[in-house]
Every structure is written in structure tokens, then in C-alpha cells.
């Protein structure tokens, strides 16, 4: 058994420190070690995106990243995007536009969408579809997901303008 690694992470603003086997996958660290169960496991092969988190400012599929590769990282999951009293605009928008059904893909979907809108605050429909192609949904057929993201983008831009 290889030596355990000394890991430090910041997850949703909280510092975590522990020893872990190098082969531990980030998704298991989050879900089982830290009980951050928003990100889900859908495919084990980075196709479905249910495990998507934001790691050091990039969308990452946490099911195929070893914990050693994530050492020192700053990670945001769905739990870090909003609170029950102050939801993220996307969390509101997905509900408003029926952008989810079984909900299993939703945490990864919203986490990715939040990053997408940071990268491109005013995407076209085509850019949303392309930018979300790493996240699979089996229930909605995407139409309402795209609608939710475009609506959130408008709302966020309007809020930004109002603030300026």
C-alpha cells in the first residue's frame, strides 16, 4: 500500500485537511469523506458530468481526478453556489423554467452553467448548447435547461447593469 498523502483542500469556503490514499477519487473525497453529496456519480468515465465541480476556477469532472491531483485546490460544488435564503440565480431559473426532472444531473448541470456564464456572460443558444455538452440529462431533452440558462444570463446581466 503506498504512503498516504497529506491533503489540504478548500471546499465551499471551508478548509479541510486529511490523509488519503493517492488513488482516492475526488468525487469519493467529496461524497464520502466530507459528506458533500450534491455532486453525483453517473458514469465513472467523465462523460455524463453529474460529478461536475469548479476546481481552481475551472469546470472539472471529479469522478476521474485523483485526490493527489487536487491537493491544495479551491473547490466549489452546488452546495457552495447558494444558500436556501439566497439562491443562485441559476437555482431559481432551473425551477422557474422546469429545467430538471429527476434532479440527478442538476447539481453538475447548474455548477457547470454557473462557470459557463462566468466565461461567457451573454451566450447565444448555440454557445449554451456547446458549452453544456459535457453534461448529460436523461429526462428533460435539454430544451428547458437551455431556456433556464439563457434566462439566468439575462437576469444576471440586468442585475449587473442596474448595479452599475
Amino acid at each position: 500500500m503506498p504512503e498516504k498523502l497529506h491533503i489540504k483542500l478548500n471546499v465551499n469556503g471551508k478548509s479541510e485537511e486529511f490523509l488519503a490514499e493517492p488513488r482516492e477519487l475526488l468525487i469519493h473525497t467529496l461524497r464520502e469523506r466530507l459528506r458533500v453529496t450534491g455532486p453525483h456519480i453517473g458514469c465513472d468515465s467523465s462523460h455524463c458530468g453529474a460529478c461536475t465541480v469548479t476546481l481552481n476556477g475551472k469546470s472539472v469532472k471529479s469522478c476521474t481526478m485523483f485526490i493527489g491531483q487536487a491537493n491544495g485546490a479551491e473547490i466549489t460544488t452546488i452546495e457552495g453556489l447558494g444558500t436556501p435564503d439566497a439562491l443562485h440565480v441559476l437555482q431559481e431559473s432551473f425551477r422557474e423554467h422546469h429545467g430538471l426532472q429527476c434532479g440527478f444531473c442538476t447539481p453538475g448541470m447548474i455548477t457547470r452553467a454557473a462557470k459557463l456564464l462566468e466565461e461567457n456572460p451573454s451566450p447565444s443558444e448555440e454557445e449554451v448548447r456547446f458549452g453544456m455538452a459535457g453534461n448529460i440529462c436523461r429526462c428533460t431533452g435539454y430544451q428547458n435547461i437551455v431556456k433556464s440558462i439563457l434566462a439566468a444570463a439575462s437576469e444576471m446581466n440586468a442585475a449587473k447593469e442596474a448595479a452599475e
Binding site: 453529496t37 452546488i78 434532479g103
Partner: peptide
């Protein structure tokens, strides 16, 4: 609007 969505959109 769906009552289920509050928990699903918040990872709960």
C-alpha cells in the same frame, strides 16, 4: 412550479 425542485437544485 415543482415542489421537488428546491432540494434538487440545492444538491439536497
Amino acid at each position: 412550479k415543482r415542489v421537488e425542485d428546491a432540494r434538487f437544485t440545492q444538491g439536497k
